[in-house]
Amino acid sequence: MQHSRFMNDSIHIARDERRDDKRSLWKHIKSNIPHPKRDYTSFPAVKIGRLGVASAYAGSGIGTYLLTMTKDLFVTDNRTGCRFITVDAYNKPGVIAFYLKNSFAFLWGKDSEERTRIMYFDLLRHRADDAQAAIRPVLDHPPPLG
């Protein structure tokens, strides 16, 4: 029915990129990280290497449920010490819309014509209340099995 795989990753922001393509991410980081640590050029992340739901269950909310569980997993006791979740999303309208709906953002614009687009989610934005609201429709109306 579903498959997921995770791996270690990081987001690199070189000094020249702070004024360039990753400017909006840099502004976000700058506003949420204490001053002494703002000079870092790399931030720990966990990458979703593979996330899939059987086509029979597409649109049922299982994908959002899996992402919410993933966010919960990496926020609870911060098992990996990561700040972000990243994904190389297939550059297809439905896939991009799915990640945008789940509060992911584009890392930069340079890959807009590529086969995949790098997207990220800031785990500081994830709260338990938001998680429960996101999975409630799946729990109330689970998809039929078989």
Rank of each mutant, 00 (worst) to 15 (best):
R5I: 08
D9C: 04
D9H: 10
I11K: 05
I11W: 07
H12M: 11
H12P: 15
A14P: 03
R15E: 14
R15S: 14
R15H: 09
E17A: 11
R18D: 10
D20N: 12
D21Q: 11
D21W: 09
K27V: 10
K27R: 13
H28G: 03
H28Y: 13
K30R: 08
H35D: 04
K37R: 07
R38M: 06
D39P: 00
Y40R: 13
Y40E: 12
Y40Q: 11
T41H: 09
T41P: 07
F43M: 02
P44R: 00
P44W: 00
K47D: 03
K47N: 09
K47S: 11
I48C: 15
G49M: 05
L51A: 07
L51S: 09
S55R: 12
Y57G: 05
Y57E: 04
Y57A: 05
G59H: 11
G59D: 12
S60I: 06
S60C: 12
G61K: 02
G63I: 04
G63C: 02
L66R: 02
L66E: 02
T68K: 02
M69I: 03
T70H: 05
K71S: 10
K71W: 05
K71A: 09
D72V: 06
L73Y: 02
L73Q: 09
F74Q: 00
T76K: 07
T76F: 04
T76D: 10
D77E: 07
N78G: 03
R79K: 03
R79N: 01
G81I: 00
G81A: 00
F84T: 01
I85C: 08
A89N: 05
A89G: 06
Y90N: 01
N91W: 09
N91G: 09
V95S: 00
I96M: 08
F98D: 00
N102E: 01
S103V: 05
F104L: 00
F104T: 01
F104M: 00
A105R: 12
A105V: 04
D111N: 10
D111V: 09
D111E: 14
E113K: 15
E114P: 15
R115T: 06
T116W: 13
R117G: 11
I118L: 14
M119K: 06
Y120F: 15
Y120Q: 01
F121E: 00
L123M: 07
R125D: 15
R127K: 11
A131E: 06
A131R: 03
Q132A: 09
A133Q: 14
A133D: 08
A134L: 10
I135N: 05
I135Y: 03
R136E: 10
V138W: 14
D140M: 11
D140S: 13
H141Q: 05
H141P: 03
P143G: 01
L145E: 10
L145W: 04
